[in-house]
Design a protein around this nucleic acid. Structure first.
Lengths: 342, 342
DNA sequence: TTGAAAGCGCTAACAA
DNA sequence: TTGTTAGCGCTTTCAA
């Protein structure tokens, strides 16, 4: 049986209260008792029971994260890195991270409500925001702490971190045109996802600024998976007048598009340009290495987590709403020579 | 403020005890009171406070998972899928999953001890076992519940699930030889990992059975990442007499090797065969699609989780030690034509 | 069939 | 400087 504060108290010959205070560094304990208590607690291997502390403090010290994944065989590297970013930062602050996965929809909302109502978490990280985001509406409605990764379409009266992907895709469009690819296609995720809008808008703007445009027939919607990117790229490449560039809205779909282009025997970076978004570790090691927009996912996870904890603890946030400037990562998939090739 | 069992009791005009019993379906409550209690609880939106229940039951209903990752930018698709498998199954049983990431070593052990001593989890899932696994030695030593994914070198007196990867790699070796590739290399993970041994042993056996062998110069050790596979493959391909087949011990390293081969202008599947292990979703969509050994990662995660929960609850396990038969997935990277190519 | 009381392990207001 | 007491929200003996 584990040693409790009571055991320590008995051994020291003091009250439980005194032990508690000594251990927490209160200054109304004599130096003598403090050292004694610390010594004995150490000797006996005392650890406070986290559950009891939490019940008493009426706090769970736990953060919730519901990953919106379709299908069980989810293995989005993006999420694993984001998760690590949150989890490690949470641990630094003594918080636990409660993770689950649910496809967007009813069961997902149920997971949120369940966690709130049974008081299992102190706050949520909401990831992959939607245009009109029910999760955010709900949490905002009941005034429950959360920080989002991403923005929404409505009023932005909540804390979030986001990358300015509109700007990122604008740069990308210009880069593609500059590289001499003019029949430009885009594979975007379902339009309900907020970042779909930003990326598509940005892409259109960039093309316009470079004197081009995105034709409707060259716009495809897909599901952010490699398979999805593969299928849509196949459709594009089977057209009478296929595009000479495909900008996918995430790296995974870009990988799928690359595979499709490979199978058509196209020289990627020369006959066709393909681009992604995210810069997951794999994109550097793909064949060919993928031109993409960098998102510092791990750091963003940490940042979001820290903001959430501050929010929960009622500490004022120095920045409530953070928008990060993205940077282009130019690699061979758009015909840019990288070091390794020189 | 959240509604407690006391609130419900007052409203019903019964004692807290009765309400508790009614809600838990005890049969010493009159049908009348039961329905009344249920109705009122529902109306008031009562949810039991999980923390209080747990404190009282002296259980955390929480499972621990410490992912052994090197470096923060971990994004091993293998782990994300495994995690989803565990997490979703845990949720089915009303258990929480506490996730953290630590590189193997002292901090990792500290994470385990910390969680045990402050009674934050009821048991652990131990993943990616090592030859002499300190985590397992520790947990076994204090008789703390855990289930491992993988075996160890010493006495196997603990519950685990593992794939017979020795057999898997034996099949793979034979397949490679059958396809006509004879100068065979292998990229294995650090030999301390238990599955490294099984896979390497199996590979050697398979080669021997097919009349070949693994020359020392063709054996490289790496770190399970794409970058690692890329670097080692480059070393192999730069040799005077480079191998004509590279068997990597996981898919990620195989991807790296494929990239290296691509850069050398080699026709993969024809001039050189490259194989992986795991069959992560991406391997099907790589270019070329990767011949590999399937592991049903999501299902394994669920299975391990279920075993652990039974173990915690003291229910006898129908199978304490599960070894799954692997199956080969033949694709183009070893010259096998797949449907899409016909 | 029900309720009073104890207790899970801890913290904190209050009194001494 | 220390101890008494109450209480976090819940479950569960035990007695009525």
């Amino acid at each position: 049986m584990a040693v409790t504060i009571k055991d320590v108290a008995q051994r020291v010959g003091k009250s439980v209260t005194t032990v508690s205070r000594a251990l927490h560094g209160y200054d109304d304990v004599s130096e003598e008792t403090r050292t004694l208590v610390e010594k004995v607690a150490e000797e006996m291997g005392y650890r406070p029971n986290t559950l009891a502390q939490r019940l008493q403090k009426r706090t769970t010290d736990t953060l919730g994260l519901v990953l919106p994944t379709f299908g069980p065989r989810f293995s989005d590297p993006f999420f694993s890195e984001f998760l690590a970013g949150i989890g490690n930062k949470a641990a630094d602050f003594g918080y636990d991270l409660l993770v689950s996965t649910q496809p967007p929809g009813e069961r997902e909302m149920h997971a949120y409500k369940q966690a709130v109502e049974s008081r299992r978490v102190d706050g949520f990280v909401v990831v992959r925001t939607r245009m009109n985001d029910e999760r955010i509406n709900y949490l905002r409605g009941i005034d429950f702490p959360f920080v989002a990764f991403g923005r929404t379409h409505g009023e932005l009266d909540f804390p979030f971190v986001d990358e300015d992907s509109q700007h990122g895709m604008r740069l990308m469009a210009q880069h593609i045109i500059q590289q001499g690819f003019h029949r430009v296609a885009c594979i975007a995720p379902e339009p309900d996802l907020m970042f779909a809008k930003y990326r598509l808008d940005g892409f259109r703007e960039g093309l316009a600024e470079a004197g081009g445009s995105l034709e409707d027939r060259y716009l495809k919607y897909s599901d952010l998976t490699q398979r999805g990117g593969y299928e849509k790229a196949n459709e594009l490449l089977a057209m009478d007048e296929p595009p000479t560039a495909i900008a996918a809205c995430n790296d995974l779909m870009a990988f799928g598009a690359i595979r499709a282009a490979h199978e058509q025997g196209l020289a990627i970076g020369e006959e066709i340009a393909i681009t992604g978004f995210d810069d997951i570790p794999m994109s550097e090691h793909f064949h060919p290495p993928l031109t993409t927009v960098n998102q510092p996912i791990y750091e963003i996870g940490g940042r979001v987590c820290e903001m959430l904890i501050h929010h929960i603890q009622g500490k004022p946030l120095e920045e409530e709403q953070v928008i990060l400037k993205p940077s282009l990562v130019l690699r061979e998939s758009t015909g840019v020579e990288t070091e390794e090739d020189i």
